[in-house]
């Protein structure tokens, strides 16, 4: 390193610990005096830079930090209200969503159970004749229903209580030749009348009393007249 290079570095970084800088400093007295003058100048400059620091500045910094923290922590009433309303909305939305999901799942399960039940009791499909005069009323009474119009009995071929999915149900054969099956299933009441069908059946779920009335028939069978008559003739007390 020559003197020019040394002095250039000295004006940039007189505190460098570079080996060639230190070596030149040791061997060149002029450059040693130069670097000493630069550091002495810096010392004077440092002294001149020592502007007074306000005594209470640290306290103000702390105070501002604490206030900032408290402000961040403090939640205003309207923010609480907003947070609460958002929470309620989300919770309600979630609840309703869950309800809808749960109801849809129940309907699907009920339809599957009913179709399965009908398919597994073929012996009664071809029931002929008419139900004994009070049999239909007694079966329905067992499920909290009252037959208020006896005319419907002319459409009923057979009525009895059986079990589906470990639950007692009212099983009624109606329509022409007992082609239409009416089940009354206790349990979760659905929200609205819901038609359904599969490859060979059609039907409708009707919320009634403490459960649902299910009318199911082979595809192509008219069920609407029976559904209307059932609604008019049975009163639910549950």
């Amino acid at each position: 390193m020559n003197c020019l290079e040394f002095r250039r570095i000295c004006l940039s970084d007189p505190y460098t610990s570079a080996a060639d800088f230190a070596a030149h400093r040791l061997e060149c007295h002029e450059c040693t005096r130069f670097v000493d003058s630069v550091t002495a100048f810096d010392k004077k400059l440092l002294d001149a830079m020592q502007v007074p620091v306000p005594e209470d500045l640290a306290t103000r910094v702390k105070l501002r930090q604490v206030i900032g923290e408290e402000h961040a922590r403090r939640v205003r009433p309207w923010q609480w209200a907003l947070a609460a309303s958002i929470f309620v909305s989300v919770a309600l939305g979630g609840f309703l969503g869950l309800q809808v999901y749960s109801t849809n799942l129940y309907i699907a399960q009920l339809q599957a159970s009913v179709i399965d039940h009908v398919n597994n009791e073929p012996d009664f499909i071809s029931v002929q004749g008419k139900v004994p005069s009070d049999k239909f009323a007694r079966v329905m009474a067992a499920f909290g229903a009252e037959v208020v119009n006896k005319d419907i009995e002319s459409l009923i071929a057979h009525a009895y209580v059986c079990v589906m999915d470990k639950r007692p149900i009212a099983h009624i054969f109606a329509g022409n030749g007992g082609q239409v099956t009416v089940l009354y299933v206790t349990g979760k009441r659905i929200g609205a009348e819901t038609p359904f069908k599969d490859d060979s059946h059609q039907g409708v779920l009707i919320p009634a009393g403490g459960g649902n009335l299910v009318v199911i028939a082979p595809k192509g069978e008219q069920i609407e007249p029976l559904v209307t008559k059932l609604k008019q003739s049975i009163r639910w007390s549950i």
Binding site: K44, A48, M49, Q50, P52, V53, P54, E55, D56
Partner: peptide, 25 residues
């Protein structure tokens, strides 16, 4: 405009040399 601050932590260098250095800076 730098001057003594009431209750300042350190003494402020009011020498002419310091003044000249500050102005140059």
């Amino acid at each position: 405009d730098i001057g003594e601050l009431p209750g300042a932590k350190v003494a402020f260098d009011t020498s002419t040399e310091a003044f000249v250095l500050r102005r140059a800076l």
